[in-house]
Design a binder for these strands. Structure first.
Lengths: 122, 122
DNA sequence: CTGTATCCAATTCGATACTG
DNA sequence: CAGTATCGAATTGGATACAG
């Protein structure tokens, strides 16, 4: 394991893993929240328009797509680009940080996907 | 990036990333839910008793610790061991699968912890 | 010490309708 | 096409009290 709990702990000194007020919690929450993970994974596959995201992330409502995208944009993970055309065209993509995040998220998602369906014998 | 979105997509055929009914979603939800991440990270540091978890995961209520542990146990990530002593002693640890999961979770948590506090310029 | 039960507050989420 | 607004339902989460 490349990163140990002990190392993580050491950074926070003697305090609990993350203090309740720690902003890491906030971002971690955004990123790991139900739709956040899925949107980031989809965007890791390339730039998408609103409608494409809506179709690709199965079951997401317009409201949640909107709030999720705005949250991730505010956190600096997603870039939104508007073309002043009619009808409007808006494209969403990952920022550099978003791609870094996706690199850490994809192995997790992949592993969970593999895990499901196997028998748990431990 | 070791795992690409395209590969992930390919497994589901032509369907959206994960169908809404996909059980991957359920487990992913448990695992990435607010307290799930923190509990797993703490347990990756070794076996903990109830009271230790309570202190280590700052701000968690007894109710959430209980439900989180029971969910993760049902998913096969956490092992619960009781010693028939008085007063009772109960120890929680990761199963093999739990450790596999933690390996994927720690880099993500570490990265987010590092990310927070840096300036976003992208 | 290790929990469970209960009640209530806050948040999330979805369906729908509507706008530029 | 790309959203926002609103409402109500469901879920999550916290505080407290209590039990083995």
């Amino acid at each position: 394991m490349s990163v140990s709990f002990a190392e993580l702990r050491a950074r926070g000194g003697d305090k609990p893993l993350f203090s309740a007020e720690c902003s890491t919690r906030v971002v971690l929450d955004h990123v790991t929240r139900k739709w956040g993970v899925l949107v980031i994974v989809v965007l890791s596959g390339g730039t998408h328009r609103w409608g494409e995201l809506r179709r690709e992330v199965d079951g997401i409502s317009e409201k949640m797509l909107g709030t999720t995208l705005r949250t991730l944009e505010a956190d600096g993970f997603v870039h939104r680009e508007t073309f002043g055309t009619v009808p409007p065209r808006v494209e969403y993509s990952l920022t550099n940080r978003g791609r870094e995040l996706a690199e850490r998220l994809l192995p997790l998602v992949e592993w969970v996907a593999d895990y499901v369906g196997e028998t748990v014998e431990d």
